[in-house]
Computed example of a mutant assay.
Amino acid sequence: MALVVGRKAGEAIILDNNQDGSKLRIEVVKDDGMLRLKIEAPQHINIYREEIYEEQRKNRL
């Protein structure tokens, strides 16, 4: 499943896992040619940049 949304600085989206109550809040904090996001998540959820995540995943194989 994919969702494409447009958001302005100060606006956010919520990802909510109704099964365990976990939610992520992703807010656009700045858009000046380089989009800046603020991600709020419970401590048990790890947040990675994709390239770091993929590198670590390859190293585990």
Rank of each mutant, 00 (worst) to 15 (best):
V5N: 00
V5P: 00
I26R: 02
V28H: 02
I14R: 15
E50F: 05
L24T: 02
H44F: 07
Q19F: 10
N18H: 15
I45C: 06
V4E: 10
G33L: 07
N59T: 10
M1R: 11
N17Q: 06
R25W: 02
L35E: 05
R49V: 09
I14S: 11
R7A: 09
G6F: 02
Q56D: 09
E11T: 01
K58R: 14
L15Y: 06
A9D: 11
L35N: 04
I47W: 01
K38Q: 14
G10K: 07
K38F: 10
E50N: 12
E51P: 01
L3Q: 12
E27S: 15
G33S: 13
L15H: 06
Q56F: 07
Q19G: 05
D20E: 09
G33N: 13
Y48K: 01
Q56V: 13
D16W: 09
M34P: 04
E50K: 11
I47Q: 10
Y48A: 03
V4I: 12
E27T: 11
L35Y: 01
V29P: 00
A41D: 11
N46W: 10
R57H: 05
E40P: 06
I14D: 09
P42F: 03
A2T: 15
H44C: 11
E55Y: 11
L3V: 13
Y53I: 12
Y48Q: 04
H44Y: 10
Q19Y: 11
R57P: 04
E11D: 02
G33Y: 03
A12S: 09
L15I: 13
R7H: 07
S22W: 07
E27W: 05
Q43T: 10
K23S: 14
K38N: 13
E54K: 10
V29L: 01
R36H: 09
R7K: 12
Q43N: 14
V28D: 03
Q43F: 11
